[in-house]
Structures are given as structure tokens and as C-alpha cells.
């Protein structure tokens, strides 16, 4: 879907800026918005480019930096921590060869931290794009990663 057809679903008013940015980024493989896209978005919603940049940099779901096709957001709040989220993170780091904030060289995965996902009764949890995975164990993580790798190939 082109940027134009995407944003035109929203009224051209600043209060729809965050929603439009989120939906547009979700639809893009690299989950980010470029400078030239920001110029167009700013114009459509009648705000300055500075404002759009400020909004994009404020929300961790929005990004100017290209991300992997699958963004893994692992919870680092207390209930997940006491349920060994560290071992989940460690498994992810080892299997993907990256640290939080980094993207795999093949552009497939980005690893990030997130706040509570509301799955404390099924901790530990993480999200991959808009799917939430719960009751995680290192073995489960390995299986999930393989699934995503296969899906791509």
C-alpha cells in the first residue's frame, strides 16, 4: 500500500498522526518511517516536520531507524523477571547473535525491551510484531524462532 493511500484513510487533522504513523509502519517490512515519508505525512496532517520527528522519537513503537521484519519486544518488568525472563533474553541473544536495540544482518529480526505486556499470569512473555507469546521457555523460544525463519524462506 502506498503512503498516500494509507494516510488518506485518516482525516487530515493532527490528532490522527500517531495512529496513521503506527498503521503505516506496521504495514512496512522495516517498521520505520523515512525522512521523505515524514515530509509527506507532516504536509498531510498539517503539522511541521519537527513535530512528526518529535512524535516518532517519543514512542518506542515508532522509528526513523529501519528495523528487522520481525521486531521482538521482550518484557523486562518484575513478574517476567522473577519467572526467568533473563534466560529467555539470553536464548534470543545467542540464537540471533544480537543485543537489545540491534538488528540481525539479514534484516529479519530486531530485539528490543518493552514494558509490561499484561501477561503477568503467564510470564515470561514477549511480542513478535503484533503476536504475543507467553509461558516462554528457552526451548519454546527456539521453536518460535525457527517458525519465523521458515515462514520467511
Amino acid at each position: 500500500m502506498t503512503l498516500e493511500s494509507m494516510i488518506q484513510k485518516y482525516p487530515a487533522s493532527p490528532e490522527y498522526l500517531v495512529e496513521a504513523l503506527r498503521d503505516y509502519q506496521m504495514a512496512k517490512n522495516d517498521h520505520s518511517v523515512t525522512e521523505s515519508e515524514i515530509v509527506k505525512i507532516a504536509k498531510y496532517f498539517n503539522v511541521t516536520e519537527s513535530k512528526v520527528c518529535s512524535v516518532v522519537s517519543f514512542y518506542s513503537f515508532l522509528s526513523e531507524k529501519p528495523k528487522g521484519r520481525y521486531v521482538i519486544r521482550i518484557c523486562r518488568d518484575v513478574p517476567c523477571f522473577v519467572n526467568k525472563s533473563e534466560s529467555i533474553l539470553k536464548t534470543l541473544e545467542t540464537r540471533l547473535g544480537i543485543k537489545p536495540g540491534e538488528t540481525t544482518p539479514d534484516g529479519l529480526f530486531t530485539l528490543e525491551y518493552t514494558g509490561c505486556l499484561g501477561q503477568c499470569d503467564h510470564a515470561p512473555a514477549f511480542r513478535i510484531n503484533d503476536m504475543t507469546y507467553v509461558d516462554l521457555t528457552p526451548d519454546k523460544v527456539k521453536a518460535i524462532l525457527s517458525e519465523y525463519r521458515e515462514e520467511k524462506s
Binding site: T48, E49, S50, V52, C53, S54, S57, F58
Partner: peptide, 14 residues
């Protein structure tokens, strides 16, 4: 405008 959030905020052009 401010860029980023919390203690990482900087005031910057776009």
C-alpha cells in the same frame, strides 16, 4: 522540538 523521551531528550531541529 524535543526528540526522544525521559533523560534522553534533546532539543533539536527535525
Amino acid at each position: 522540538e524535543p526528540l526522544n523521551r525521559g533523560h534522553e531528550i534533546i532539543i533539536s531541529p527535525p
